[in-house]
């Protein structure tokens, strides 16, 4: 959790993600048109854009849930294989639909990956899981099943589950879009807390308040391309492109 200190102290910042000229098709339909994206370690990126603009696909390419047809992706300096069997272990991900394992308790959800994929002992993994559940402020729910929790609680469990893998990068794919309005804040607060700890974060979200509060850079995508990217105050205060202006006009 000290990556911020180490990255800001260096003259050449450590790069967490380098994507260059990413092209992706679903059959004949091209979803990504030569996207370039570089993310420094400790940087917080918010990606927004209209539905179907390729923003979710872009972050799903980073941890290889989607294969790319052209271009290259480097994660923490390592070039990713184009036909992956597994995902890079130092990237955690939180989904719109939570995707908790419904047949396991909260605690079992959290320790499955560390025990089976990282070879951590069950005791050690349980201890770590309890710490992270404490951090997302639901330690008392450890022995419940996902269906017994509210949406906001489920999403916080999902965040804890991702953190238990001790990732260096966290991806959030519209983490609050499936939540009832009154539960959005508890999830955003957890994410803000995480951002303040210096986690490298890439968030696809339409929560512009969150973007203003924590993002180092806001990226606007449309039709599979990055249209505009800027620091939040410039992005919101003085958008350059017509499409960005339209989009911001529609969601605010």
């Amino acid at each position: 959790m000290s990556s911020q200190a180490s990255s800001t102290g260096q003259s050449a910042p450590e790069l967490a993600i380098e994507m260059s000229q990413i092209e992706k098709w679903y059959g004949a339909f091209q979803v990504l048109h030569g996207v370039d994206l570089t993310v420094e370690a400790g940087e917080r990126i918010v990606i927004c854009g209209p539905s179907g603009s390729g923003k979710s696909t872009l972050i799903r390419c980073i941890n290889q849930l989607e294969a790319i047809q052209k271009g290259s992706i480097k994660v923490n300096g390592v070039v990713l294989d184009k036909t992956p069997k597994t995902v890079p272990l130092d990237i955690g991900m939180v989904f719109q639909q939570f995707n908790l394992f419904p047949h396991m308790t909260v605690l079992e959800n959290c320790i499955l990956g560390p025990v089976k994929a990282l070879g951590v002992s069950k005791e050690k993994a349980t201890q770590t899981a309890r710490e992270f559940l404490e951090r997302v402020r639901i330690p008392e729910q450890a022995d419940k099943y996902p269906a017994q929790l509210s949406g906001g609680q489920q999403q916080r469990v999902a965040i804890a589950r991702a953190l238990c893998m001790k990732p260096r990068i966290m991806l959030f794919d519209e983490p609050t879009s499936a939540l009832d309005p009154e539960m959005v804040k508890e999830v955003l607060d957890t994410m803000i807390d995480l951002a303040q700890d210096g986690m490298t974060m890439i968030c696809v979200t339409h929560e512009m308040g969150f973007a203003r509060a924590v993002a180092d850079r806001v990226i606007f995508m449309d039709h599979g391309q990055i249209v505009e990217e800027n620091a939040p105050e410039l992005f919101f205060g003085n958008p350059q492109h017509e499409r960005t202006k339209n989009f911001l006009g529609q969601i605010s």
């Binding site: 941890n63 849930l65 069997k85 597994t86 995902v87 272990l89 990237i91 955690g92 991900m93 989904f95 639909q97 995707n99 908790l100 394992f101 499955l112 990956g113 089976k116 994929a117 990282l118 589950r161 991702a162 238990c164 893998m165």
Partner: peptide, 21 residues
């Protein structure tokens, strides 16, 4: 659901563990 496969992959599970657990 596909999301279950994806969540399992994201916490590092390979094919056998994904199916089994």
């Amino acid at each position: 659901p596909t999301g279950q496969h994806e969540a399992a992959r994201v916490v590092g599970l390979g094919y056998v563990n994904r199916m089994r657990h």
